[in-house]
Design a protein around this nucleic acid. Structure first.
Lengths: 339, 339
DNA sequence: GGCCACACCGTAAACGTTTACAGTGCGAGG
DNA sequence: CCTCGCACTGTAAACGTTTACGGTGTGGCC
C-alpha cells in the first residue's frame, strides 16, 4: 500500500508539466503526442484521480447524504431503493445516516453539512423542531425534506398525504360494515403519529361516527409494541371490529395478538396497516395497507435534489405524492384479497 | 449560501495566525487568552471545519464503503443494519454502493478505492472472478470481503457456513420423515448458488438418500422466479414432500405456489428457507429458515475493518460465522412452530 | 546585566488537484 | 527578415487544512 502515483509522478515520467497531465486527463485540447505520452504513463503507473483533492478544488464532492431514523424500517428502505439508482445514474455517491430517531443526531447531520463532505441532503425527520428549522434556514447545501415542513422553509419538500391515506382505509373499513374502528398509533409527538391520529378522527367525523377515546391506543411504531397496544385495547374494548394501524409493523403485531387471542381476521376484526411495505404482502393474512408512496417519494426527492444540484438556485418546491389503498385479505378475506 | 468562513476568516477576526486557529480547534496547548479569542470568533462566524481539506491533509476520509448487490435484499439489509452503528460509533460515515449484481459495477467499486474517497471497504461479491482477485491484490485501502475468497487473497474474510446450514435444514426435514426433499436453487454460477447446491447433495448423501436431478430446480433468488421454479418441479414430481429453498424469497414464492396448488404446508409439503430474514417471521405459515448469521457477519466485518483501520498492518483474517436453524410452522405446523 | 530555557506564536510548506496567465516556438504574411 | 498570431505548454496560485520550523518575549538563574 505504498503511496499511489499522483499527477506529479505522471508528469515526471511523461516528461511534461502537471498542467498538461491535468488537461489530458480532463480531455481539454492537447497535442496528440502529449496525450499519448500522458496516457501511457498513467496506464503504466495505474493512476487513479484523487477524489479528495479534486473535491477541494472543485468544491463538489459528488456525494449526497440520505438521513432517516432507521434503515431497517421498510418505508425508509423503499425510499432508499429509489434514491440510490437515481443518484448513481447522475454520478453521485450515497452517504447513509441512520439517526435512530434521536433528534440530536438529526441536528448533527444538518450541522455536518457545513463540513461540506456532501453536495446535498435528503432527510426524513421524525419530528421537526425549532432547531431543525434554524439549521435548515442556515444550511450550507441544498436539502430536500421528506415529510412536512412549514410554509416558507427554504428547502424542497416532498409530502405524503397521510390524511387522505387514513381516510381511504377508514372509509374502506366502514364500507365493509365495521362501525367500531379502533386506532393503534405511534407517539403523538412524531410527525406521522400526529398526522395519522388527527386524520383518523377526521375520517370518523366525515362518516358520522363518534370519536371514542377508548378505541384509540398509543404505542410505538414497532411490532412488539404494536402488539402490546392491541392487547390493551382488546382488554378495554373487546367489541372492536376493525383496527386502523398507523404502520405495517404495528399491524403485524396486531395480527400476532389477535391470532393468539383467537380472533379471526378479518371475520372478527379487520386489520389495515399503513406504508404498504414488503411485509404487508408477505404476512398472513396478507395485509390491507395504505401506500403512502414511499418509493415514489424517494424518487421525487432524489430528482428534486439533483435538479437543484445541477440547475442552481430556484424557488423551493413542495410536491405531494397521493396515497392509495392496497386491499388484501386482512380486511376482505382470502377469496377476494388473494394470497 | 455565501462562502462559509475558513480558518483564515477566523484568524483575521481573532487577530491571530491560522496556525493558532488550527491549534485551538484541535485542542493543542495554547494560551488561554488565544483560545478564548479564537473560540469567540469561531462561534460568531458559525465556523465548521471543512472535511474535504482536512481529509486531503490527513489522508483520512473517515468514510467506509459498503458494497452489495441490492439493499432491498433482506440478508444484505441485516448486514447493513449491524455495520452502520459499529462504524458510526467509531466516527466513520457509511457510503452505500448497490451494484445490482453487475460484476462490472463491483470492479468499479474496487477500482474506485484508488480515488481515496473512503478509508476502507466492506464488500459482498456475488461472484468472485479473476478481475476481483486482481483488484483485491492491488487494492489501495483495506477491504473486508463477506463471502468466500481463495486462500492467500490479502483481505479479511467473513464467511457463512452454508454447507452446515443446508445440512441442518435437510437433516431437520429428514427427521420429520420426509424423504423426497426437493431443492429450489438460484443460479449455479453465483457463490451462494454453487455452495448451497453442493451442500444439498452432500447432506442427502450423509443421510443415505439418493440424489435425484428431477428434484432440483434452478431459478433465481427472487420470489416470483422462485415460485415459477416450484411450479415446474411440482409438475415433474408431484410426490415431493419437502422443499429446501436457497433463500427466503424463493421460499415465499414456494408458499404462494403451493397454496395456489392446494397443497397444505407443512402437511403435504414442508418448506424451509435460508437467511432467516424478517420476511420469514412475517409469512404464513411462518417460515422455518436457516440463519446464516447475516447480522453477525456484518458486525464482524465492520469490526475487522475498524481494527485494520485503527491498528494498521496485520495478517489477513478469516472468520466463519456458524449457522443455526430457526424452526417455525412451515415445517412443523402451527402448534409447535408458533405464530 | 547577560544568558538560557521555555512557552507561545507566526511563516510557510505540504496534501493533489484545477486553472489563469504567461511563455515558447512555429508558420504565415508583410 | 521582422512581426504577428496561434497552438501548445509550463509556472504558479488557489482550494482549506495541518504541522515543522524558527522567531519572539518572558522569567529565572548565575
Amino acid at each position: 500500500m505504498a503511496d499511489g502515483p499522483t499527477i506529479n509522478t505522471i508528469a515526471a515520467r511523461a516528461g511534461v508539466s502537471i498542467a498538461s497531465v491535468s488537461r489530458v486527463l480532463n480531455g481539454l485540447p492537447t497535442r496528440q503526442e502529449t496525450v499519448r505520452k500522458v496516457m501511457a504513463a498513467a496506464d503504466e503507473l495505474g493512476y487513479v484521480r484523487n477524489a479528495v483533492a479534486r473535491s477541494l478544488k472543485s468544491r463538489r464532492t459528488h456525494q449526497v447524504a440520505f438521513a432517516m431514523a432507521d434503515v431497517g424500517n421498510p418505508a425508509y428502505l423503499a425510499m432508499l431503493r429509489q434514491i440510490q439508482p437515481v443518484l448513481k445514474a447522475a454520478g453521485y455517491r450515497l452517504v447513509l445516516h441512520s439517526t435512530d430517531a434521536v433528534v440530536a443526531d438529526e441536528i448533527d447531520v444538518l450541522h455536518g453539512l457545513g463540513e461540506r463532505y456532501v453536495d446535498g441532503l435528503i432527510m426524513v425527520p421524525l419530528r421537526v423542531t425549532e432547531s431543525h428549522l434554524e439549521m435548515l434556514a442556515a444550511a450550507r447545501a441544498p436539502v430536500v425534506i421528506i415529510g412536512s415542513v412549514p410554509e416558507g422553509t427554504p428547502v424542497d419538500n416532498v409530502r405524503a398525504d397521510s390524511r387522505t391515506g387514513v381516510k381511504l382505509a377508514v372509509d374502506h373499513l366502514h364500507s365493509l360494515g365495521r362501525r367500531r374502528i379502533g386506532m393503534i398509533n405511534g407517539p403523538l409527538d412524531t410527525v406521522p403519529g400526529a398526522a395519522r391520529g388527527a386524520a383518523y378522527r377526521e375520517a370518523l367525523g366525515d362518516l358520522g361516527l363518534p370519536y371514542d377515546e377508548d378505541l384509540v391506543q398509543i404505542g410505538d411504531f414497532y411490532r412488539a409494541e404494536g402488539g402490546r397496544a392491541v392487547a390493551e385495547l382488546l382488554a378495554r374494548r373487546p367489541d372492536v371490529d376493525a383496527l386502523m394501524c398507523a404502520n405495517d409493523l404495528i399491524a403485524l403485531g396486531a395480527l400476532d395478538v389477535l391470532r393468539a387471542a383467537g380472533r379471526r381476521v378479518p371475520d372478527d376484526v379487520a386489520v389495515a396497516g399503513m406504508d404498504d411495505t414488503d411485509l404487508a404482502a408477505a404476512s398472513w393474512p396478507a395485509l390491507t395497507s395504505v401506500s403512502l408512496g414511499s418509493a415514489e417519494r424517494g424518487k421525487v426527492a432524489a430528482e428534486l435534489l439533483l435538479d437543484r444540484l445541477q440547475g442552481g438556485e430556484r424557488e423551493p418546491r413542495v410536491v405531494t405524492v397521493p396515497p392509495h389503498l392496497m386491499v388484501r385479505a386482512s380486511t376482505v378475506g382470502a377469496e377476494e384479497g388473494g394470497a
